[in-house]
C-alpha cells in the first residue's frame, strides 16, 4: 500500500505543479503544436504530393512520441537539477521509500499526465491536417507500456548522470536530438537499430496507427523483442542509476549543488 500512497502523492504533486505553472504548460503545448504545424507546412510545400499523406502521418506519430520521450527522459534530469538547486532533493534522499522509487512513480505520473496532453495534441494535429490515424487504444496501450519501460531505462541513466554531474543541461539539449533519432528511425530500413531503446515499440505503434495493424498482426518474435528490449533497458538504467546514487553518497555529491 505504501507504494500506492507514494504514487498518489507524486501524481497529485505533478498535476498541481502543472496547474500552478499553467502559463508554462500552455506555452509548452502551443510550442509543440506550432512546430508541428511548421513541419506540416514544409511537407505540404516541398514534399512529394503522392506520398504526402503518409509522410504527414509518420511525422505526426514520430513528432508526438519525440515530445513525450523528451518530457519523460530529459524531464527527470531537469527535475533533479531543479530539486537540488532549491534544496528539496535532500528530503527525497531521506525518504524511506528510496529516491529510485520516488523517481519511478514520478516517471509514471509524468507519463500519465503528458500522455493526456499527447492525445490532445494528436487529435488537434489530425483535425488540423485532416490526416486521420488509427488510434486503436486497445492495441496501442500494451505496446506503449513496454515502450515506456525502455524510456524509463534512459530516464534512469539521465537521472544517475544528473546526480553526479549536476550541470548537464548542455548534454540534455544534445540528447534531445538523440531521442529524435530514436523516435524517427524507420526499423524496416534499418533493422539493426531494433536493439536501441524505444525503436521496436515505436515501430509497432506506427504499424498500428499508420498501417492499421492490430495486436494479432504482430509475431511472437516482435513481442519478444519488444519486451526484451524494455526489460533490458529498464534493468540497465535502474542498475546504472543505483550505482550513481551509491557513488554520489560516497563522494558527498547527493543533493550537493
Amino acid at each position: 500500500m505504501a507504494i500506492i500512497h507514494l504514487f498518489q502523492a507524486n501524481l497529485r504533486k505533478q498535476a498541481i505543479e502543472l496547474k500552478r505553472y499553467a502559463p508554462n504548460t500552455i506555452a509548452m503545448v502551443l510550442t509543440v503544436y506550432i512546430i508541428f504545424m511548421a513541419i506540416f507546412a514544409g511537407i505540404k510545400m516541398i514534399g512529394n504530393p503522392v506520398t504526402q499523406g503518409v509522410a504527414v502521418q509518420h511525422t505526426m506519430v514520430n513528432y508526438i512520441f519525440w515530445y513525450l520521450a523528451m518530457i519523460i527522459v530529459n524531464g527527470v534530469g531537469y527535475e533533479i537539477i531543479t530539486e537540488t538547486t532549491r534544496g528539496t532533493f535532500e528530503q527525497l534522499g531521506m525518504s524511506p521509500s528510496g529516491i529510485w522509487r520516488i523517481l519511478t512513480v514520478r516517471l509514471l505520473a509524468d507519463s500519465i499526465l503528458h500522455s493526456l496532453m499527447v492525445i490532445f495534441l494528436l487529435y488537434l494535429s489530425m483535425i488540423t491536417t485532416n490526416q486521420w490515424l488509427n488510434v486503436d487504444f486497445i492495441s496501442i496501450i500494451p505496446i506503449f507500456l513496454f515502450a515506456c519501460l525502455s524510456m524509463y531505462g534512459l530516464a534512469f541513466i539521465i537521472a544517475g548522470l544528473t546526480i553526479i554531474f549536476k550541470q548537464i543541461q548542455a548534454f540534455l539539449q544534445i540528447f534531445q536530438f538523440v531521442l529524435a533519432g530514436l523516435t524517427f528511425i524507420a526499423l524496416p530500413s534499418l533493422p539493426f537499430f531494433l536493439f536501441l531503446p524505444l525503436t521496436k515499440g515505436l515501430s509497432m505503434i506506427r504499424a498500428i496507427m499508420i498501417e492499421g495493424d492490430v495486436l494479432t498482426d504482430f509475431t511472437m518474435l516482435d513481442f519478444t523483442l519488444l519486451i526484451g528490449n524494455a526489460l533490458i533497458y529498464v534493468g540497465v538504467g535502474l542498475g546504472f542509476y543505483l550505482y550513481c546514487e551509491n557513488y554520489a553518497m560516497k563522494r558527498g555529491l547527493l543533493a550537493h549543488y
Binding site: 500500500m1 505504501a2 507504494i3 500512497h5 507514494l6 498518489q8 502523492a9 507524486n10 497529485r12 504533486k13 498541481i16 505543479e17 500552478r20 505553472y21 528530503q91 527525497l92 525518504s95 524511506p96 521509500s97 520516488i102
Partner: peptide, 19 residues
C-alpha cells in the same frame, strides 16, 4: 509552489503514508 497543506500531504505520501 505547493500550499502549506499540500507540502505536508506530499511529504507524508513520500514516506508511504496515505492522505
Amino acid at each position: 509552489r505547493l500550499t502549506v497543506r499540500e507540502n505536508l500531504e506530499y511529504f507524508a505520501g513520500n514516506r508511504g503514508q496515505s492522505k
